[in-house]
């Protein structure tokens, strides 16, 4: 089975995000980069499928040179080879362009099932997986917490939780599956895995090599940091009754919430 897992590199959830003074992006200095957690579920699921059905897992990533590290992480977990789409022209690419680049890379290799995270924790757009499926013209099963492949490896049943219920979605391969938390418990790379990953093949390609024309459809106009949280206020007063009265007054007159 030919399995593809798309991975994105994102800042660690705990990293301190500073917006550049001109609002054109974030200041990347001192940021610890990690694999997007939802993509990790995708990689794990890909590896489990490989263990069950045999075959190969190819990791596809997009971004500057630093993204190689994340690609290697997926290889250390057990993926077999990588394609790294690296082109300055694609920096800051929107969901459509990203998906188009991924689609071009994936179209060039055999693919039975493609895993993406349901969204990336940095821009939260959640569009790349679905657009990728559209561009490849294959079905998509999105935001799934369970993905069962039939023994014949031709059809898939997936569970997608929705408000108060869950959907059982069936589809045929090839297809795109976007992973939601709960799909699995991603493994921790073994040391031999880490060592071997250093020698696994990763194909670095630019937009031209993939035949992708960069046509950005949506652009982030400006990054604006959330307003700094104002210091809290301790309501004074001698007894609970005065305190409560003061609190009510403040809520009404200052915070204007009641």
């Amino acid at each position: 089975m030919n399995i593809v897992a798309c991975v994105k590199q994102v800042p660690d959830t705990e990293a301190q995000i500073k917006v550049k003074p001109d609002g054109s992006g974030i200041d990347e200095s001192g940021i610890k980069w990690v694999m997007n957690p939802y993509d990790e579920y995708g990689v794990e699921e890909a590896l489990r499928l490989k263990e069950k059905f045999g075959g190969e897992v190819t990791v596809v990533s997009l971004g500057p040179a630093r993204v190689m590290e994340t690609t290697r992480t997926a290889l250390a977990m057990g993926s077999d080879k990588g394609i790294h789409i690296c082109d300055p022209a694609l920096d800051g690419a929107d969901a459509y362009t990203t998906a188009a680049a991924l689609a071009a890379a994936i179209a060039g290799i055999p693919h039975d099932i493609i895993f993406c995270g349901q969204r990336a924790i940095d821009d939260d757009s959640g569009q790349v997986g679905p657009i990728l499926a559209e561009l490849l013209g294959i079905p998509q099963l999105t935001v799934v917490t369970k993905a069962d492949l039939d023994v014949d490896g031709k059809t898939i049943k997936a569970i997608r939780p929705i408000e108060g219920a869950q959907l059982l979605i069936e589809g045929t391969l090839p297809c795109v599956v976007t992973a939601q938390k709960g799909l699995n418990e991603p493994r921790y790379a073994s040391l031999p895995g880490i060592m071997k990953a250093k020698k696994k093949p990763v194909d670095t390609k630019d937009a031209a090599a993939l035949g992708v024309t960069v046509a950005v459809k949506a652009k982030v106009a400006r990054f604006i940091p959330p307003p700094a949280r104002a210091a809290g206020k301790i309501v004074g007063g001698d007894d609970p009754a005065t305190k409560a009265a003061e609190l009510a007054r403040l809520l009404r007159e200052e915070a204007k919430v009641i």
Binding site: E14, A15, K32, E185, S190, L191
Partner: peptide, 30 residues
């Protein structure tokens, strides 16, 4: 740990935290 990646899952969180933020609590290194 190194060969089999078999260990209590809570420990995996601590390892990840040490990797990403250089402390087992996982609080921002900065």
């Amino acid at each position: 740990v190194l060969m089999e990646s078999k260990f209590p899952s809570a420990l995996q969180t601590a390892f990840r935290n040490m990797e990403n933020n250089s402390n087992p609590w996982g609080i921002g290194a900065h």
